[in-house]
Nucleic acid binder design. Structure first.
Length: 390
DNA sequence: TCTGGGGTCCTAGGACCC
DNA sequence: TCTGGGGTCCTAGGACCC
């Protein structure tokens, strides 16, 4: 997990109905652009074509989950607050969000709760309360929509807006409206596209406004490591380093064809465009249509008995079926995930003979797929995912 | 101190068909 | 007897993000 000036936002537990997989959609936008808008909603390109919005704003709530918890318990203000798991730092689980006071002790998103407790014993540990965050998030998004711009929701605590006019003035207005509606602080990144806006936000934190454009791109980012970019993680950064590409500037100057060979036909060339700050995906408020729905659990104690494993898979499958039939979507494929005790993860799946909404057939398929797992070692995690017919 | 849960998309290899 | 390509579909794994 990058620390320091990395512009990634604090990670948070997510909500299923929100737009995801955004990065790869930036990659494949060229191919999918024709379909955008088919689902309804408005799209705005930030380029100045015919009076369409010229600026993209990225709004990111500051330490969202921790801030929401402090909001309902003001006595926690100024104290290190760590939200994650069920709030018991002796159990298996990771940090969803740490307040800035806790981050000063080296506690960050994704850190095991036990480690967080060692680093910051005086922290207040709280359980994740999804319903609350969803409520507050809705208030935030309503406040953003009140400005009349196209709003693309990116999770509980993030959104893009396509705007015209003075972007700094708009950013100040956004910060005021969000504060008035919820009492929360946010940071606004301004860019000529979503990529620039998203990265700008990291430099404005906390509670600030930052503008990043094609003109300032290399001045701001050129000397930073490639994983400062949105979409490049530790693994890809390491691979790039092996190719002699360390910084954003290096990557921007790399040969797309060479990277296509080395990394992959789609991702290779896309990385170069990323490093150049180029992105022509639209800001869109088209309703999000999920591709899959799943449930998974990490057990507090590993499961030794395969009968228990079968029972748990059946339970997860029924939960998924319940979730899914609520939206009336047809299931085309069922995937089971098993994480064995030393954190070795395997998945197996099956495409159904015909799409179904029948909970029994989903459970049956999941148990069927479970038989494909040969190992009988202790199990740490089980998951079931249903993929929708498209 | 072991490493959550919710997702998306890409890749590579094999099967199969023409 | 040996040897093609191209296309599509499926599967498991991997990388990344919130």
């Amino acid at each position: 997990m990058p620390t320091g000036p990395s512009p990634t936002s604090p990670s948070s537990v997510d909500r299923t109905s929100w737009r995801r997989g955004h990065l790869r959609s930036l990659q494949s936008h060229g191919r999918r652009a024709a379909n955008d808008g088919a689902a309804g909603g408005r799209s705005c390109w930030w380029r100045n074509n015919g009076g369409v919005a010229r600026w993209v704003l990225h709004v990111d709530l500051d330490q969202f989950i921790a801030a929401v918890e402090v909001l309902r318990r003001p006595e926690l203000s100024g104290r290190p607050v760590v939200v994650g798991g069920d709030g018991d730092p002796t159990k298996r689980g990771v940090v969803s969000t740490a307040s800035y006071e806790a981050r000063a002790h080296g506690v960050h998103s994704g850190l095991p709760l036990r480690t967080a407790a060692r680093r910051c014993p005086e922290a207040v540990f709280l359980p994740v309360d999804r319903d609350l965050y969803e409520d507050v998030s809705s208030q935030v998004m309503a406040a953003l929509r009140s400005l009349g711009a196209v709003v693309e929701v990116m999770g509980w605590d993030e959104a893009f807006l396509a705007v015209d006019g003075d972007p700094e003035e708009m950013a100040r207005e956004i910060r005021e409206r969000v504060r008035a509606a919820t009492g929360l602080e946010c940071t606004v990144g301004i860019g000529q596209n979503k990529l620039q806006a998203k990265l700008a936000t990291g430099f404005g934190k906390p509670a600030g406004i930052f503008r990043l454009t094609g003109e300032t791109w290399f001045e701001v980012l050129g000397d930073r490591p490639a994983d400062a970019l949105w979409g490049i993680g530790a693994k890809t950064a390491k691979r790039l380093k092996g190719l002699g590409i360390g910084t954003v500037r290096d990557l921007a100057a790399a040969d797309p064809a060479a990277l296509a060979d080395a990394i992959g036909p789609t991702i290779g060339p896309w990385l170069v465009r990323l490093a150049q700050g180029r992105d022509d995906s639209p800001v869109s408020d088209a309703p999000y249509v999920p591709r899959s729905r799943g449930r998974e659990t990490t057990f507090q104690r590993d499961l030794d008995d395969w009968d228990d494993v079968r029972r748990e898979v059946a339970r997860l499958a029924r939960r998924v079926a319940r979730d899914v039939t609520a939206d009336g979507r047809q299931i085309a494929r069922v995937v089971v995930k098993v994480r064995y005790a030393p954190f070795i993860t395997q998945t197996h799946g099956r495409t159904l003979d015909a799409p179904t909404v029948d909970p029994e057939r989903i459970e049956e398929a999941a148990l069927d797929v479970l038989d494909a797992f040969a190992g009988r070692r202790p199990v740490r995690l089980l998951g079931v995912r249903a993929e929708f017919a498209r």
